[in-house]
Design a protein around this nucleic acid. Structure first.
Length: 431
DNA sequence: TCTGGGGTCCTAGGACCC
DNA sequence: TCTGGGGTCCTAGGACCC
């Protein structure tokens, strides 16, 4: 038996903890560069603002409907997430942290689980201040579906029985009642059924989660894929997707960004790419891995129809796997020079570290006395300084030294403070 | 004018091996 | 006219997730 705990409209809820005046108001959190909506309060959803909708399309609601828009504050959300996860873990013996605001908890054998879930939920609300929904079911897919039910029963009364509001346990439901819940759920709301497969299923005459659950797994495998087959079996109550107890090491690490405005010069791209390498390599060292390949890409904006378009990437195999920022930056800049073409308005660039391997596993070789081959201590010192004095306190010089005046800097007009991770930005309570 | 970032898994097809 | 069988590895592309 599994539980899925997740924060409602998580980013918005985090912002509301520190600005209670946002309660009850339509609030949207924007993506990087204040580009599009990535979290919406229920009130904002009611205004018709869609997930991923471009900001400029709903900006007018700030005046017309009292909409509050905020720039993304991922430092805050990450810290709130850590706190939330540690409390959610109290629900059962095993936990898989699935995303910034969701975790699966293995709850097999936990007595009075529904009541316990209510207590954990109240604790999350009181200690963290973030409202959560908890769904419980015999498979991860059914736990996800139960979580959807819990949220819908809360937000849209009448869509499901009222006792499912906030906490929904499908595990102790008679079969006929479970069928009724599945029948009331759109197939597109099932975990694992996205836009494309959803369209194909609807074209085949299916409408609800119950329709999908009644498909024959072998047929589904033949006509679609083993992935969808697992979804069908999980809906039928047969567990196919394991709980991933320990976080696995990443197989690739990326740092990619759209620019605050388009840039043309190689120099600016070099600064950006160097910075991306620095961040990616830092993540790489944190998980104690080495990269075997590095990929760099640059492209123009497909949304700027008037611009000539250009997009290219290049993958460079590294002679030795490495986690050395300076070495990786050298490689990345050479790679960038190979794909850069003047005369385009570049909108985005990125770096990916691929073919990652454990740093403990090293190919032995003759020491050919390569200068600077091992800068592990320098990297450790860089990481320590940046941890203590903030991101970017030390970096490769090719990342540029002009700070916020950098041409490509991200636009973030309404970012809230780092309330919980920076002494200078602590909130102040006044009597 | 203005449209995010970071991942995973699966499959098909080609190259290559004996 | 007639052209094997069995396998691995790699990559690109598609689909999904939050």
């Amino acid at each position: 038996m599994y539980a899925l705990v997740d924060g409602n409209n998580f980013y918005v809820s985090c912002e509301r903890v520190f600005r209670p005046s946002l309660q009850g108001r339509p609030v949207v959190v924007l993506s990087n560069n204040d580009g599009c909506a990535i979290a919406r309060s229920n009130e904002a959803k009611a205004l018709g603002i869609g997930m991923g909708q471009p900001y400029h399309e709903f900006r007018r609601l700030e005046g017309d409907a009292g909409l509050v828009t905020l720039s993304a504050n991922f430092t805050l959300y990450g810290d709130m997430s850590t706190r939330l996860m540690s409390i959610a873990a109290g629900l059962g013996p095993e936990q898989e942290i699935y995303s910034i605001d969701e975790s699966f908890v293995g709850v097999a054998g936990v007595p009075a689980i529904t009541r316990r879930a209510h207590l954990v939920r109240e604790r999350l609300l009181q200690w963290i201040g973030v409202p959560c929904g908890i769904g419980i079911g015999p498979t991860k897919t059914l736990a996800k579906l139960a979580n959807h039910v819990a949220k819908s029963a809360d937000r849209k009364p009448g869509s499901y029985p009222g006792e499912f509001a906030r906490v929904a346990n499908l595990g102790e439901l008679p079969a006929s009642d479970l069928d009724a819940v599945l029948a009331a759920t759109e197939l597109g709301d099932v975990w694992g059924i996205g836009r494309r497969i959803g369209e194909q299923l609807r074209a085949a005459g299916l409408r609800t989660a119950l329709d999908v659950a009644r498909l024959d797994p072998a047929t589904v495998r033949r006509r679609w894929s083993v992935v969808l087959e697992r979804t069908v079996r999980e809906l039928q109550g047969q567990p196919c997707i394991q709980l991933e107890d320990a976080a696995a090491a990443k197989k690739e690490i990326a740092c990619t960004r759209s620019f605050g405005r388009t840039i043309q010069r190689l120099q600016d791209l070099q600064e950006a790419v160097t910075e991306f390498v620095g961040r990616a390599a830092e993540k790489l060292r944190r998980q104690e891995s080495l990269a075997g390949q590095l990929l760099v890409f640059i492209h123009t904006s497909p949304f700027r129809r008037q611009d000539r378009q250009y997009a290219r990437s290049i993958t460079v195999p590294l002679r030795r796997p490495t986690a050395d920022t300076l070495h990786l930056a050298d490689v990345a800049i050479t790679a960038l020079q190979a794909i850069y073409r003047p005369g385009y308005n570049y909108a985005k660039a990125g770096v990916m570290l691929l073919d990652l391997q454990d740093q403990a596993v090293k190919q032995g070789e003759l020491d050919l006395d390569e200068p600077g081959a091992d800068r592990g201590r320098l990297m450790a010192a860089m990481d320590a300084i940046n941890r203590r004095h903030g991101r970017g306190a030390v970096h490769a010089a090719s990342a540029g030294t002009t700070g916020d005046r950098r041409e490509w800097a991200m636009r973030q007009q309404r970012r809230t403070p780092h309330y919980t991770t920076d002494w200078r930005q602590l909130p102040i309570a006044r009597a």
